[in-house]
């Protein structure tokens, strides 16, 4: 059984976003990276699935060679090997080019079960998982909060706006992981030591051209300075007056 977790490096959550000199990309000077939060859930679920069904877990990413840092962290948590589709332009690659490149590689690998984070916390598209599944012709359930697997098939519960939806599917399948699916484990010292010996392969990326063309990147407009209406419950009538007559939102 071939299990793959796709991960992406994203700027640290605390990153102070700055626009580069070209006015349409992120200034990467001094930016530090981490594995996108939801992709950590994908790694955990891949390792769990291996523990249940057997097989091998590969961590797949598109990025610079230095993305081996994030791969090692995943290998330390129980994955078997890593692959980087090396791309110097990784941060500007659009979701179609990304999904196609990943799908091509996953097809070559003969992946049975693929885990992705529900969304990468840089571009927030939540698109690559279901897109690559479509290119692969694989089943896909997104935003999964509960997963039950058996030989060759599974049932996934998905967090939807109106409630929780259950889907039945067969392998090959792509699952995008939502918070609540699992609690990612910490890498122990033993895991970290073992990860150093695990293979990480660098492969050339053959990506198609972007269809998304950035025109400009801006800081959001600042909100006009508000005001403190008052203190304690006695300020409630003044607040109601402001909402009813000034902001007119009620």
């Amino acid at each position: 059984m071939k299990i793959v977790a796709c991960i992406k490096r994203v700027p640290l959550t605390e990153t102070q976003a700055k626009v580069a000199a070209d006015g349409k990309s992120l200034d990467s000077a001094g930016v530090e990276y981490m594995t996108s939060f939801y992709d950590e859930l994908a790694v955990e679920q891949a390792v769990k699935s291996k523990e249940q069904l057997g097989g091998e877990v590969t961590i797949l990413t598109i990025g610079p060679g230095s993305a081996s840092k994030e791969l090692r962290e995943s290998l330390a948590k129980g994955a078997d090997k890593g692959e980087i589709l090396v791309d110097d332009n990784w941060s500007m690659r659009d979701n179609r080019a990304t999904a196609k490149a990943l799908a091509n590689r996953l097809r070559e690998m003969g992946a049975d079960l693929v885990f992705c984070g529900r969304v990468a916390t840089d571009r927030d598209n939540a698109s690559v998982g279901p897109m690559l599944a479509t290119y692969l012709g694989a089943a896909c359930v997104t935003d999964v909060v509960e997963l039950e697997l058996s030989e060759g098939k599974g049932i996934a519960k998905r967090e939807a706006d109106s409630g929780v939806e259950s889907y039945e599917f067969s392998f090959p399948a792509v699952i995008t992981c939502q918070k609540d699916l699992n609690e990612p484990r910490y890498a122990g010292l033993k895991g970290i030591m073992a990860a150093k010996k695990k293979p990480i392969e660098e492969l050339p990326l053959e990506a198609e051209d972007n269809q998304i063309e950035p025109l400009s990147l801006d800081l959001p407009p600042a909100r006009a300075e508000g005001r403190i209406i008052g203190e304690g419950a006695d300020a409630v009538p003044a607040l109601m007056d402001a909402l009813l007559n000034e902001a007119k939102v009620l």
Binding site: D94, N95, A99, N125, A126, T142, R158, D161
Partner: peptide, 23 residues
């Protein structure tokens, strides 16, 4: 950009071999 829209739209985009603009 609801849970249904965000589940379906990426798949439609890929079926059409097009990129997706979310949210």
């Amino acid at each position: 950009a609801s849970s249904t829209g965000r589940d379906i739209a990426p798949r439609v985009a890929a079926e059409l071999d097009c990129a997706l603009f979310s949210d």
